[in-house]
Structures are given as structure tokens and as C-alpha cells.
Nucleic acid binder design. Structure first.
Lengths: 337, 337
DNA sequence: CTGAAAGCGCTAACAT
DNA sequence: ATGTTAGCGCTTTCAG
């Protein structure tokens, strides 16, 4: 019995062990139909025997494919990482890609230096595709991506680029309508809203949906803006309360901001939902942890992630274009409204 | 003016543009000292001119280095991703590695299938090192890692393997002592604790620290166990309250579990901190969001991540061994104790 | 200090 | 259906 060498086995070793040529081994390994069953069996056995694992660098060199996609986080980091949605997206994407043996590399693109690194990485041909997380319309990276002509898909629409960068997202507008209508149906009369940043799809579209139900004119003073952070939710709630002390409901554009709003309402002595009904958006983990528990709009985030990955893989596999997908939301009623 | 070709420039193009050989270009690019300043300048200019970026696959093939490290998430996913600490670790590690032009690929190792994928990836030589997150002592991956002889560092100690897998971590035991001593100093008499899983360093060492201050015998009934999830914190708090209705303080092994405990205390009509003082651990974002705000132990997570990465890079750079590092914690007093 | 040349391990085109 | 062979782009001896 030969002593196992330290060196990792190459396709050459497999060829020798199975009695066929390197070419045949390669074909067998890559599912080429022109391989006899006998050869296939021999190769499989040899692979098991030698513990052979393909060297991606070598394969990559000739195929010009890397088996890697990059997840680019454009959001200023702190904000994004505070966002519980992010974890879900990362987890699901990692797993879906792994199922196809595609590695996911993480990159942050918070400042210019970061961005340059991302571009260099992509120009270096180190990835087959890009998964964009919360990219803003003005992001300089977007232009670079286009010149690089590398498959790219966004998780959530990229405002102003909906036609050019395909995406998967929840139906923000319809979700907001559901919540607004629900508050109306509960008999609420002075319904305010706290939006996310208006240069994000969630910020803009949820406001649109809100206005679809409540009308555009009436609500000017009842609209305040946040940046999805808990803290901004508090600030916006204070602003709203100062402006319209007798408001009786507020639709908040994210659960995290809603948690902030809840804290301010308590601090100001308003009972929820008796005095003020509060509706959130996301149905993230935090929604079940607030006091009272949050009535909110559930986004099918796992599906969003799954679909985003699917679109990207299709593009990588050669599809010329793919259609964006928009997934339905659900109203989840708990205690706050 | 020549039309720019689609093809990415290779080292060959740079050689031609700078009038030196490929070998010299390579030397210049890799900081080899034996390059004349003239040649160096010419190469630099040519690189800028052509927009050349090295092809990692080709380099990898010859150097046997990949410029990639894998972050392996051993924890059952859901739990880990619910953990706010994770985001910090990921963010800091990504950035630190990027500074060294090392890519971070994410892999989950929740079940056997996942684990096999990770091993295959590593055997394939696709990564220079491994960053372990919350690996358990019994994790089969650990054995594999040893046979692969690939540099590996853990973020947080791997129980029972402290000697073999280097790590960076907060001083859990001392942190727990700080909190326990603080509760004692506040005049609390019946101090309970809710631990994390005892097969994790945080679970075990924080309990040890607690016992260091309060003694081992006295506390049997005052110890309950959770799994770091919010829900488990609620369950443990109920158990404790049923067992020892007159407890007047509880040290909870994580902020998330403490949030759960807080909810149960309110539900049972106990005032915090008047009737029961509550101490957490982590000083994660949630600590400022609970009501009342949580008094807790701050772990220097960013430093932990930074140090973990540093250790790994040292190993990859050829160090035979590195010393684990343990970082000091701080008591952060807010409203709950 | 620099050029030439030999591969690194693999796939794909070309012959059979 | 299979063997042979020519590179993929780079680093690294080996000569000079």
C-alpha cells in the first residue's frame, strides 16, 4: 500500500488511477454526455479513492468562471448591520448559493476606498456576479458595474434603475396600503406616518401606498421622515407629536423605527393602542419583542433572498435578461393596532 | 489611437507597454527588491495605462495561495443570526481583511451536508485560512480542520480546545464577576442567574465568574439555563420566579435573554429595578432599547474581531503558533440595576 | 538586475 | 466515446 503523499491529488492522479485520460476524467466530472458508463464508474471510484477535489483556480483560469459571487453592502455599514432584515438575506443567500456550489464573498462599499476595492476585485475577474444590497440610485458603483458588464441583481429595487438592474423585492406599496386601510377600518381619524429615507424603495414606496389610501393633500403635516434607525424613529415620533398632538395612529416604515416610536409614545404618556395605534413594517424579530407587540406588515424576506439569488444565477448562466419579481406582503395584527 | 479591446489586459500587455519582460513586471508588482527604479516606474505607468489587474486564479495556481479566508458559522443558523453580536463580528472582519486584500467568504455549517461542503471547499485549497464562529467542542468540523492542517482561528474560545485552536475573546469570567459583585454591592441578597448553553464559552465562563463571587453551594436553585435566544430568557425567568419567588436580582448571560427576562418580570408584576435588579451581558444595541434600559457588561467585540483576524493573518503568513488574546470587559450601568 | 522558459491544474478543441 | 494537445495568466527558477 503506497504511502499517501502530502500533495493534493490532481486530475492526473485520477486519470492514472482510473485508467483513462485526463480529458475523459474532466468530461466525467463535468457531466459531459459523451462518457461511457464504464469510464464514468472508473472515474468515480478513482475520485473516491484518491480524495480528489478539483482545483478551482486552475479551472477558473481556463473557463473564465470563478464560482464566486460578491455580496456588496452599499449602505453605510452601521445602519445596515443594525437592520435585522440583513441577517435573513445573508443567511438565505449564502445557503442558496452553496447549494449550487457558488461561494459568497462579502464586501462593504461604504466609502470611496471600499468601493475602489470592490471594483478592483470585480475587474480582476474574481466573481461571476454581484448581489447588491440596498444600493442607492446615486451610488457610483452602479456606473462601474455597467461598464464592467458583469451580471448584477439587487435585493430590493434600485430607485431610478428599476429597468436596468433586475431585482426581487416585497410589494412595499401594496403592503403600505394594507396597513393604511387597516388603520382606517379601525376607525382611526388622524393617521400619521414615519417614512424611511425617500431615496430608498422602502421609504418611497411605502409612503406612496400610504398616500394611495389617505390622499395626498390631507397629510402634509402628518408625514415625518426617518432613516430606518431606531433613534430616527424616536425623533420623528416626537416631531409628529409636537405638530399634531391629537393624532390617533401612526404607520411607521420599519419595525425598528416603530420600536423607537413606541418608546416615545410611552414617554409622552400615550397609551398604545388605546390613544394611538402603531403599525410597523417588516415583521422582523423585534416586532414580537416590543411592548405592546407590534402590528406590522410581513415581508417575505426569505423568498426575496431566494428569488434574488435565482435571478442572478440565471444571468450568470447566460440569460440575456431576467424579469424582476415583486412578492406579496401580509398584514400581521398583534397588539399595537 | 488603438481601440481598446474588450479582453482584460494581462501581464503580457503590461510587459509590452513598459518595454520589460513579464518576469520583471511580476517582480515589480510583487515588491521584489531586485528591480531597477527605472523598470519599476515604467511598469507602474504601464499598469495605470492599461488598467491591468492581476488575475488571482493564475497567481493562485502557481503560488498555492488564494487570498481568501472562510468564515464558518457553526451555530444552528437561526440562533446565530438572531444574535446581534454576529453583525459586529462580520462587519469588522470583512473590513480588516479587505484592508489586506483578502476576501472573506461566508459558509454555514449547520448540518452534515453543509459541513461536507465546507470541508470540500477547504480540501479544494480554495482558502488560506478559516475563521470559526461559535464552534462547539464536539463539532466534527474541528477534527477535519486538524487533518487539513489549514490555519484556523476562533472568535471566542472553543471549549476543550483552547490549547489547539487559538482565539480572541472577551474575558467572560471576569465580566461576570464584575456584574455579580456590582449586584452584591447594591445590597441584593437573592441573586439568580440565567446562563447561556454550558457548552459555549460564554455560557460556562460567565457562570464561573458568577460563582466566583457568590459561592458554589448557595446558588443551586438560583441557576437556570437558556440558549441565548430571547425566548429561552423568558422561559428561564419564569422557572426562576416559580422556584424562588423572592429573588431580588438576576444576572442574565446575554442582553437578548435579558430582554426576555424583563418582559416576564413585567408580566409577573415585578418592578425593575425596585423589586428585581436585572443585569445583562454584551452591551448590544438591544440594551439601550429595553424598558428599563439594561445595565450590562460591555464586550469589546470590535477588538475581538480585529484580534481574531490579526491572529489568522499571522498564521497564514507563516507563524508556527500564535497566542490567544483575552480582552477586558466593562460594566455599563443604566436603569435595570 | 533582467530575460527566457518551465510549469501550476485544468478544460476544450481536435483528432481519431 | 476517448486520447492528445494547446493554452488560460502568472510566478519563479535559471542563466546571463
Amino acid at each position: 500500500m503506497p504511502v499517501t503523499n502530502k500533495r493534493r491529488p490532481t486530475i492526473h492522479d485520477v486519470a492514472r488511477a482510473s485508467g483513462v485520460s485526463r480529458g475523459t476524467v474532466s468530461r466525467a466530472l463535468n457531466g459531459d454526455p459523451y462518457v461511457s458508463t464504464a469510464a464514468l464508474a472508473a472515474v468515480r471510484r478513482a475520485v473516491a479513492e484518491t480524495g480528489y477535489v478539483v482545483n478551482r483556480a486552475a479551472r477558473s483560469l481556463v473557463t473564465q468562471r470563478t464560482g464566486t459571487v460578491v455580496m456588496v453592502l452599499s449602505e453605510p455599514q452601521e445602519k445596515l448591520f443594525e437592520d435585522p432584515n440583513f441577517s435573513v438575506l445573508l443567511r438565505v443567500a449564502t445557503r442558496r448559493l452553496a447549494q449550487r456550489d457558488v461561494a459568497l464573498v462579502m464586501m462593504v462599499a461604504g466609502d470611496d476606498g471600499d468601493r475602489e476595492r470592490v471594483v478592483r476585485y470585480l475587474r480582476g475577474g474574481h466573481a461571476d456576479g454581484v448581489l447588491l444590497l440596498s444600493a442607492h440610485s446615486g451610488d457610483p458603483l452602479l456606473a462601474e458595474l455597467e461598464t464592467l458588464a458583469i451580471p448584477a441583481v439587487a435585493c430590493g429595487a434600485v430607485l431610478g434603475r428599476e429597468g436596468v438592474i433586475p431585482y426581487a423585492a416585497a410589494d412595499d406599496r401594496e403592503g403600505a396600503r394594507q396597513m393604511a386601510q387597516y388603520l382606517v377600518d379601525q376607525g382611526r381619524k388622524k393617521i400619521a406616518t414615519i417614512t424611511g429615507p425617500l431615496d430608498t424603495p422602502g421609504g418611497l414606496n411605502r409612503l406612496e401606498g400610504f398616500c394611495d389610501v389617505l390622499g395626498r393633500k390631507a397629510v402634509k403635516k402628518l408625514i415625518a421622515h426617518g432613516d430606518y434607525s431606531r433613534h430616527s424613529g424616536e425623533a420623528a415620533m416626537r416631531e409628529l407629536l409636537d405638530r399634531v398632538p391629537d393624532l390617533d395612529a401612526v404607520f411607521v416604515g420599519s419595525d425598528l423605527m416603530a420600536a423607537g416610536a413606541l418608546a416615545v409614545l410611552r414617554e409622552r404618556g400615550r397609551r398604545v393602542p388605546e390613544d394611538v395605534a402603531v403599525g410597523g413594517f417588516d415583521d422582523s424579530a423585534i416586532a414580537g419583542s416590543t411592548h405592546p407587540k407590534l402590528t406590522t406588515v410581513r415581508q417575505p424576506l426569505e423568498q426575496v433572498a431566494t428569488e434574488t439569488v435565482r435571478l442572478l444565477l440565471e444571468l450568470i448562466d447566460g440569460a440575456d435578461t431576467v424579469d424582476s419579481v415583486i412578492l406579496p406582503t401580509d398584514l400581521v395584527t398583534r397588539e399595537s393596532a
